Simulated assay, not measured.
Amino acid sequence: MGRLLAEGDKFAPPGVKDFFLPPIFGGVTKPMVLVVLSIIIVATFFLITTRNMKVVPSKWQFAAESVYDFSRNNITREQIGSKEFRPFVPLILTLFTFVLVNNLFGIIPIIQFPTMAKIGFPLALAILVVYPLHHYVGIRKFGLGGYFKNQLFPPGVPKLVYVLLTPIELFLKFFMDPLMLAVRVFAAMLAGHLILLVFTLGGEYLLLQAPVVLKPVSLVAWAFAIAMTFLEAFIQVLQAYIFALLAASFIGRALAEEH
């Protein structure tokens, strides 16, 4: 995804159409391959770094322990609570590292494609994993009636207010929450990668196609592209954290006694 787009002598900026990549073989596309690759990377990283653990950790063991500790204590425990968080640590750790690796693909040379910029992948995580799980654990704890009562009828609210509040709660918690969980990371990855493409391909166009007087401006465009790459890396990590944080928050909310 790095070709120069030009229409005659005019620069045609990259757009959403450039995220629809042709199949590599059969119906298999590059994003599909990257998703499988990310699973292999995450699994291999933790298997290798925890295979021969020592009291004084190596740098790779320390890295694995840091990621685990961050997911366990800073995300899962804080959002779900110290009494009930332990069973959900593997899930939140997996979500965080999986989304992180797929996001970081966007700034890795040659690969240069953030998988989460394809809406189907974050939607699958939100709707097929997080959404059913957080409702299931709530129903298992409180029963079907008790769970819906907790979710849709917050205590301490005047009864007449429920006429307006309950439909809003129903819409937000059962429809909008999973959608916004997916759209948040998708939109950030799509917009960030488009910005990188604009500066990178714009610099290429200025160097190869623009008048001589404008060719030095290509260096400015590439300088911005480098700066945006560092910013995009930060956003990629942040969005992986937010995705895992919100997933844990939904579970914690489902398990809470009162809302």
Rank of each mutant, 00 (worst) to 15 (best):
V183Q: 13
F230P: 02
L179S: 03
V217K: 07
L231V: 14
V220S: 06
A233E: 00
L219W: 13
A223H: 11
Q209M: 13
F186M: 08
F175P: 00
M176R: 05
P211H: 06
A233P: 00
I195C: 11
F224C: 05
A223C: 06
L197Q: 01
M176Q: 09
A210S: 00
P178V: 06
I195Q: 13
L219F: 11
A191H: 07
L207N: 03
L172W: 14
I226V: 09
E204I: 14
F224T: 00
Y205T: 04
L231W: 11
L214V: 13
E232H: 15
F199H: 04
G203N: 05
K215G: 02
V198F: 12
V213E: 10
H193Y: 07
L208I: 15
L179G: 03
M189Y: 01
L219D: 01
F174H: 15
I195V: 09
M228V: 05
F174R: 15
H193R: 06
M180Y: 12
E232K: 12
V217S: 09
E204H: 09
L206V: 03
M189R: 12
T200F: 14
R184K: 15
F186N: 12
A221C: 04
V183D: 09
L214C: 05
T229V: 15
G202H: 03
H193L: 05
V183R: 06
V220I: 14
A182N: 07
M228Q: 13
L190V: 08
A233W: 08
V213P: 06
G203E: 03
V220G: 13
T200I: 13
G203V: 11
K173Y: 04
I195N: 09
H193E: 05
W222R: 02
S218L: 03
E232Q: 14
L201R: 15
F175W: 08
E204A: 07
M228R: 15
V212K: 10
A188G: 10
D177C: 01
T229I: 12
K215Y: 07
A191M: 10
L197V: 01
P216R: 10
L196P: 07
Y205V: 11
F175G: 09
T229K: 10
A210E: 03
W222S: 01
A191V: 13
D177N: 12
K173A: 06
A223I: 11
T200K: 10
Y205G: 09
L179N: 03
A221H: 03
G202P: 00
A221L: 06
A210H: 00
S218Y: 01
T229M: 08
P211M: 08
S218E: 11
E232A: 06
L172S: 13
D177Q: 05
L197Y: 04
A225Q: 02
F175Y: 08
A191S: 14
G192H: 09
M189W: 00
I226F: 15
A223V: 09
T229C: 04
L231C: 12
P178D: 01
P216G: 04
S218A: 14
F199Q: 02
L181W: 10
A191F: 04
L206W: 03
M228E: 10
L196A: 09
L172T: 11
V185Q: 01
K173T: 08
E204Y: 13
V198K: 11
